[in-house]
Each structure stands twice: as structure tokens, then as C-alpha cells.
Design a protein around this nucleic acid. Sequence first.
DNA 1: AATGAATGAGTTTTCATTCAT
DNA 2: GATGAATGAAAACTCATTCAT
Lengths: 219, 219, 219, 219
Amino acid sequence: MINNDISAASPGVSEPGPPRRRLPAATRVTQILDAALQVFSDKGFASARLDDIAEAAGLSKGGVYTHFASKEEIFGALLKRLIQPPMPAAPEALADEEPVTVDLLVRRVVEPMYQSLGDPSVLQAVRLLLANGTRVPQAFDQWHQTMFEPHIADVARLLQRGVRQGTLRRSAITHAPRLILSPGIHAMLDGVVRGPVAPDAIAEWKRLHVAMLRELLTP
Amino acid sequence: MINNDISAASPGVSEPGPPRRRLPAATRVTQILDAALQVFSDKGFASARLDDIAEAAGLSKGGVYTHFASKEEIFGALLKRLIQPPMPAAPEALADEEPVTVDLLVRRVVEPMYQSLGDPSVLQAVRLLLANGTRVPQAFDQWHQTMFEPHIADVARLLQRGVRQGTLRRSAITHAPRLILSPGIHAMLDGVVRGPVAPDAIAEWKRLHVAMLRELLTP
Amino acid sequence: MINNDISAASPGVSEPGPPRRRLPAATRVTQILDAALQVFSDKGFASARLDDIAEAAGLSKGGVYTHFASKEEIFGALLKRLIQPPMPAAPEALADEEPVTVDLLVRRVVEPMYQSLGDPSVLQAVRLLLANGTRVPQAFDQWHQTMFEPHIADVARLLQRGVRQGTLRRSAITHAPRLILSPGIHAMLDGVVRGPVAPDAIAEWKRLHVAMLRELLTP
Amino acid sequence: MINNDISAASPGVSEPGPPRRRLPAATRVTQILDAALQVFSDKGFASARLDDIAEAAGLSKGGVYTHFASKEEIFGALLKRLIQPPMPAAPEALADEEPVTVDLLVRRVVEPMYQSLGDPSVLQAVRLLLANGTRVPQAFDQWHQTMFEPHIADVARLLQRGVRQGTLRRSAITHAPRLILSPGIHAMLDGVVRGPVAPDAIAEWKRLHVAMLRELLTP
DNA sequence: AATGAATGAGTTTTCATTCAT
DNA sequence: GATGAATGAAAACTCATTCAT
């Protein structure tokens, strides 16, 4: 059966609508990728419609094609932006004599993780990668390599040193550095799955995470 | 592994053929509704194929969806157009002193009806409404309100006045103005059922209709 | 987006349900045609689904095929039943000397019409024929021949006689007997279009119809 | 004339090919959902074609619609099946006097988790949920409630008791029971992201997980 | 006779992509 | 650079009809 309101039946004989502002390409690209992050992360690659992205970016579908040749290309560019540069600030080198304490680990490893958790766009990115990363298999590996491995390698080095220095106790964690991230990853998944985590919930996760590390690693 | 082979992801990976002329939306909408009237009234709502409508409108099936969200919506818009504006030209007001004679009634009420009967597209519209109107619940009521009630209200006023002026005799018709339309409606139904009425058949219906009114209303 | 209630998601793993009573074929056929009248008249031939008819008839879709070979065949059988026997009770012959008065015309012609209008299934049948009759072109003619022509022929004869006898006045109606039906047809269309007419509305239509005939035909 | 050529009216005027085996609805529904799990988790909701599901389930596309009204409905039913009943076997009650040791926790909590990790269909389900869960709004919450909360509530009770009994040490974990799952969840995510985890990798994750718990909870 | 699962051809609908303006 | 009408191929969905049970 049809829409009840006959008077609402005729289609939008849309007046052209003021052509939107012509912007520098770089700006548009950024807007489009921002929009794409939203839409891809919400619906996944296949369900995302160019119209959705265009609307979220504030231009028309055709306008998007001025900047990208295809949906795939948008996705690719987005992945590149997510994976590559800004996110994982290279950890600054450590002074040779500085002792590796739990506090140091917390500052260098734990705090940044929970920092990220507070940023919705990080959760969005993670969701995007979890849900669509397999579309570009290398993306995953690369993500892993860029996001985690350096981190973990760094952690591993720190743990070794702490143990050698006697400032850290030997523990399951010193044998498997990745474990140091587990509660944070747990919290992240929680955020991805159940929506952004409230700031005080984040603080609580972190507090417990730190407490646990202290128990495990304090000599 | 998840697969999600990129090459299998999105539809439409083909070069479109030569697009037909691009028209302003309002024009296309009109064309589509014109086509829809033909097709719907020829085959009925359910048997009408979007392809037919598209072809009759001179664009592709997909192109129709640029202007209407569904077949139902086309139908609704068509009914709206049929029912609403252009048909019932508001009867021009009557000079205060002009006497309401049978001749006046004939000119204002009877002739326009038989005029319509000669127009195939009117019969088409009526047929469409009769055959498919139940699909849009209020269509009938609205049709009635737009097509008949103003007419009848006008007639009622005229009859009152004529009786008051003594230029019309009191009659069953002056008590139930709708009766003044009955032979015309009879003729219309005949046209709907048995195909367009030949011009001289129409003339004959009208002649008799007028004769009958004269018998009933001449003082 | 999906149905909100996950718990309601699984499809009806319908237990076979008690096989419905096995009935004599003739009974079933009647039930099916009754159901078909409802459904065809409501939705039109093309939009009517076998499932609808089956459900309205109280058996399964497959069951319908036990009695009819196709949807078309159901429609055909229904038309036959509508057109053929029961409806137009042959008007009993008139005693040679009986004078043809307006009262006689009312009893023989007008009253039966308004009788029918009170019967919803008659309106249904009319709607069915109006909406779908063109599907079987002969149906229309046949309907016309069966339903109206004998009637009108009868009326024509009566009118002639009345005029000859001096019991009826010469009038537009005596020249075009079909006009005698016009207000009734008008009322019928009203019923078809706007739903069954209330009993007192019918009475009112009839009263006015009779009054009009009296004005026209009383010598 | 109205046309409505009978021969152009209804679809499907063809002799169907040999129907495949006819099965009880419940069986088919299971098969279809099994197929859907494969296809959806392989391609994601939007890229999964009904044809794929039908083929994988061993019937025709139309056949699928005998059991489900839409692709969405299949997806909903699948999620329901994944989320709801069979997975979380209710933990058997604990004898009143039995002491809650780390070993007990390992048997009741840790081992089952890693058991699941070895099961590809569990990873498949998790991946499906992560990638497409937003499509069914409550899916995530419900998943959480069904999968984790009972587990965690159970763990919380056990930890309380162990602490009271003196068989477990107070620790960050005894304050936040969910932490007991963290390394397992980390491993699961790893499996989801990088493909099924090799059995000995699982064993290694578990070994370390247990070691960590021992460090934290042994009095 | 009746049921309801299954088929398959037809039809509607979607949407990435193109291109005249 | 931007718009939005138009295309066309793919995918979802419908339903008369068949037939094993």
C-alpha cells in the first residue's frame, strides 16, 4: 500500500540547489576521507554508498569522482592515511643509563594506549580495520607492523633491560611482551563493540591495568 | 582467511553505453508520468513493468529511479496529478443578477461533462482510478472531493437561486443536485466499459440529457 | 536495518498444522470462488496472489490447484458465475391488459436495482468487472448483454406500451430507455467507489429516483 | 480499448525443472543458516549474494525465500543463533566446600576460552559479529550479555570466594574480574585479524596466560 | 484431497560510474 | 570543480506452478 498522504506524493522537483563552494583539492580530499572513515566504519565497505560518503563530505556524488577514481581508491587512500604516518609517534630513544621501571613502562606504553581509547576516531579506525581489513590483506599486516610490532619490539627491549638492570621482576610478561597490552586491547575491543568508552571508565581500566603490571613486575 | 576478494565486491564494473539526452528533472517527471498513465491504464498497476514505463518515457529503467523511489511512488504521483489540479477549472463566478435558467445549467454543468467524455485521456484516468484506486486508500475520496463535490456544491447553489428566482421549477433535482449528473455518469461508465464513445453517440447522450433537464426544470 | 527484536528473528518453523478438512469438491469450488471474488475485486487480477485466495478460502495454495488448473481458470470460472445464471431474474411476463404505470416501472425496474445496491457482493462483482473485465473482452459484452440489455429491452417495451396506453407521458426517457437507469447507475458507481452505501442512503437515492421518474412520466 | 492481453499478464509460465530434494523446514533452515554463516563471514553482509547462500545450502534462490522473508532476516536469524543458546554452556555449580584455587579458575575459565580459539567456526562468528554487528543494533549488547557477562559474574563469585577462603591472593584481578579474560581476548582478536591461530600458538598463549594468573593470584 | 517446500522466470530495486551542463 | 541525470549490470525479491509426502 502506498504512502497515505497523497499530497506528499510528487517527487522532489529539486531546484538545482546552490552549487557548493569550490574548495582546494587537498581540503576536499581530507573532507572526503573523513566522511569515508565515518561511513566505512559504520557500514563496512560494501554497504557504504558513494551517496553516503558524498553527503557526509558535503558535496555531490559526482564531486567525489573529481578527487577519486573509484570507491576502492577512496578506501585505499583512507587505509593509507590510517596506517601510515601520524598515528604511531616513534618512541623517543631512551637515555642509556635510565632505569626501566614500571613507571617508565606505564608512561611509554600504557598511557598512550588509553589516550587513544578516548579518541573516537581511533576506535572508528580500529573498527574499520577489523571489519574490512581483509579486503586488502596487506593492509592488515601493514597495520600490524606499523602499529604493534615496533611498539612490542620496543617493549621487549625495555623489559629485557629492566630485568637485566634488576628494576623489573621476571614474569610471564617479560617472556611475552605482547601480554603487556592485553588489558588495553580488551578495553579497546570493548570500545569498538559497545561504543566509545566513557572517560572515567577509561581511567578505571588504566588504573587496574597499571596495578596489575605493578604486581607482576615490581621486583 | 576472510577472502573478500576485491574483484568480487562491487557491481557495475562496466562502461555504460551512450546516455540518452539529459533533461531537467521537471520535464522528465512529466514524461514519466505521461508514460505511466499510458502503461498503468493499459495494463493495470501490477502488470505494468517498469521497463515499459521507462521505454515509453524514453529513458532507462534506472533513470526512472532517479526521479521516483518506487513503482508505487510513480503511481501515487500519477494519481495525485490526475486528481488534483488541472482538471476542475474553478467555475467563474456568476453575475449577481444573471438568472439561472436551464440553458445556463447546461452551459456550466452539462456541456463540460460531455466535453470530458470526448477526451480519451479522461476516460483513461477514470478507468485507472476504478481499476487501481483501492491501492491508494484515500484516492477515491480525494477524487470525489476534487472532481465532484465542488461541482455539486456549485450546482446546488445555482439550483437554489434558480428556484428562488422562479427561473427553475422545483423538482427532485433541485432537492438532490447530484442527480443532475447522473446521465453523464452513466455515459461515462459506458465509455469506460465499452471503449471510447463515438462523437455522435456523445452528442446523442447530451441531447437527451438536456431534454430531460428541460422537462424537469422548466418552470 | 533489521527488526529490532532479535528474539523474534527465527522463521516460523511451522508445525505442519492440522491438514484441513477434506471437503466435497463442489463445496471447495464454491469457497474458492467466493474467496476469489473478494480478492480479485479488492486487488485486481494481476495483484491477487494465489496465496491470498487460498487463505481466504481456508486451504493451502496447493489445495487450490486440486480444483483449478491456473489462476486464469479461477478468474474465468468466477466470471462465468457472475455473469451467468442467478443474478438477472428473468422478468415475469406481463399480463396483456395490465397498464404500465410509473408504479409498475418502479416495481419492475427501480426497486430491483436498489435491492442489488444493498448487497455487498453485487458491488464486489461490479467492481471486479469494471476493473478487470477488459482482461476477457467478451466478458464485458456478455455482462452487458446479460445484465442490461434484456432489462433495457424490457423497459423499452414497457415504455412503449405505457405511452400507447396513455399511462405514461412522452419524455426523454421514453425515447432513451437506458436513461431510466441512470440515477441507479450513478448510485452504484458511488457504492463501488466509496464503499457500500448505507441502507438509508440507498433508500434516499431510490426515493429521489422515483420522484424524478414520476415528474417525467406521469401523464 | 484497455488491452490487458492475457498472455502478458502473469509471470512464470514455464515448466519448472526437476525440484531438488524436499526437506523438513527445520532442516532446511539449519542448512541455510549454516550456509549463511559461511557466506556472510566470508564476504560480509552486503557482498554476500542470495545465490551464494542458496547454492551453499543446496537449493534455489527462491527456495530460500520459502524460509526467510529477506536477506536481512537470514542475517538476523543467524546472529540470533550465534549469540543465543548453544555457546555458553552454563557452568556447573560448585560444591560448597571445594576451594577456589588458581587451578580451578584455569579449568573453569581459561581452558574453555582457548578451546574456543581452536574452533574456526567460533572465530568465524566473532569476525562476522565484528564486521557486521552494527547492522543489528542490539546484537553487540546481546552478545556481550550472553557471552561475557554470565562468565564474568561467575568468575567474580569464584574470586570472592577464593579470597575469602584464603586460596587466592588479593590482586587487581580480584577487583576487576574481567581482567582475567584479557589475554584470551587479545589472542582471540589476533586470531580474528591474522587468521586462525595454530594449535601450538594457542597452547603458548594459554601457558603464558596461566603463568600470569599464577603470579597474580597464588597466595 | 490437501499440504507446503521447491523451482525458475520475470520483475523490481540498487548503485558505482559516466558525462552533459 | 561541482552537479545531478542517466546508464547498465548485478542483486534482491515475487509468485504461478509443480510435486513429494
